[in-house]
Design a binder for these strands. Structure first.
Lengths: 243, 243
DNA sequence: TCGGGTCGTTTACGATGTACATTTCTGGAC
DNA sequence: GTCCAGAAATGTACATCGTAAACGACCCGA
């Protein structure tokens, strides 16, 4: 009587039954989609284009992925598989969390489109592997599961936010075809006018006093250390309380 | 000889000159676009739909905004204008930064589409106001401008990342038309199977031990405190060095 | 007064996601 | 060995998208 809820994509990955031998599968489709997104940006990922690369019709894909939304979830999880988690957890939580953060950042740089989807936390195999590894890193520190989640999620939230700001630049560059120099040429006159008006003291200090081309890796490490210090404080507080 | 660089949108906001009296302007267009995005999601924002609401043709908008990309930048800055920055800076940096974080989060909840654009830092008036206020909060703590930027950017990166995770759920709900309960119904059987296999100890602990419906505001505050502790450590280190 | 620039419209093009109907193939039941 | 339910893939079609191009209506400064 009541509609069966359509199962989540991960429970629906098809298997061979009756019918013609399949010439497509979700993994291959996902791989092509990822390659397309990497090469030409997320807007270049269209069902027709994916199908074209695989010498199939667009509609053939729907036999395997359900919808484009499903496909993005598959793409996201596929790419999580590239995370290198060997040797995690090591027993040194701070090193581990830092490594997870660096790996996450590296992944976003390799696939700048990752953050462009709004997802529920996916239940894909690689996402699960990541969660398990992450929580293992912050286990045994005297925190309950909510506390552990606080540590991990805070570090990851910082990382996501940092990376997103970084990638705003990169993505805009690709989208508009304007590199940073061209952007500065475009921006320059307006910026000069703003500074002339003298209403933006901090903007002025940023231009005059700030380091000109800071190494983004160094900046990331420096700020990550701050966040990790915050986590340390939390752990200390929890352990003091029970000591 | 060489092409003039087309000026940045903020330098191009048109003023009345020769020609028919204008019946449109960028502010009105932006307002309608924001309203549309709020009501029906960012995918509902199309030039035709905006124009329709204003009883104009789609192409009329292009007299005022140049491109849809420009429009998103206008939308973003417009919405930044809703930030309440009264009384900032107060002289208590920690309170101020916390308030900026809360305000930012509030803004993202009011306009869940904000993070879906990848932007360069915009030069719009409200973005400038926000930067100035933010940096003012962390001035006078004995840090140079790069250090100040570290404090502010770290707190904001955390906030963005946190909010984005929160909103993944909300946006997916709107996009798919499935509320959380329906999602759980869909997910449930698969999740049960996973737990049965016993390969996901932490996933299991999350379900069994973690607080069931944590208040997101409380979680945010708790994690924000951790980040602010990290900033404090950084400030202390800087001041110790010079003392 | 009138020419040139501004505002808005109309028409058009090549995309997009995907619903629907159709054809082509095959594994398992008899 | 035969046959057919059902799966795989295709082709066609529709509504919608961003925006280029050509055009007429308007109005200010010369």
């Amino acid at each position: 009587m009541v509609d069966e809820p359509p199962p989540v994509i991960w429970a629906r990955l098809s298997t061979q039954g009756r019918g013609p031998a399949r010439t497509l599968d979700h993994a291959a489709i996902t791989a092509v989609a990822v390659a397309l997104a990497d090469a030409d940006g997320v807007d270049a990922v269209s069902m027709r284009r994916i199908a074209g690369r695989m010498d199939h019709s667009a509609m053939a894909l729907y036999r395997h992925v359900g919808s484009k939304d499903d496909l993005t979830e598959l793409m996201y999880d596929a790419v999580l598989g590239e995370l290198d988690l060997t040797g995690i957890p090591s027993g040194r939580w701070r090193d581990d969390v830092a490594r997870l953060a660096r790996e996450t950042r590296r992944l976003h740089h390799a696939h700048p489109w990752i953050a462009r989807f709004g997802h529920r936390p996916t239940l894909g195999p690689h996402a699960r592997r990541f969660s398990e590894a992450g929580l293992a890193c912050v286990d045994g520190l005297g925190l309950d599961i909510d506390g552990m989640l606080d540590l991990l999620s805070t570090a990851m939230a910082f990382t996501r936010g940092f990376v997103e700001q970084e990638l705003g630049e990169v993505e805009a560059q690709r989208r508009t075809g304007l590199d940073f120099a061209a952007y500065q040429r475009r921006t320059g006159p307006f910026l000069a006018k703003l500074l002339d008006e003298g209403e933006h003291p901090y903007l002025e200090r940023l231009i005059v006093e700030a380091e000109d081309f800071p190494d983004p890796d160094v900046v990331f490490e420096r700020r990550l250390e701050m966040v990790l210090d915050g986590l340390t404080a939390r752990i200390d507080r929890a352990t003091d309380g029970t000591r």
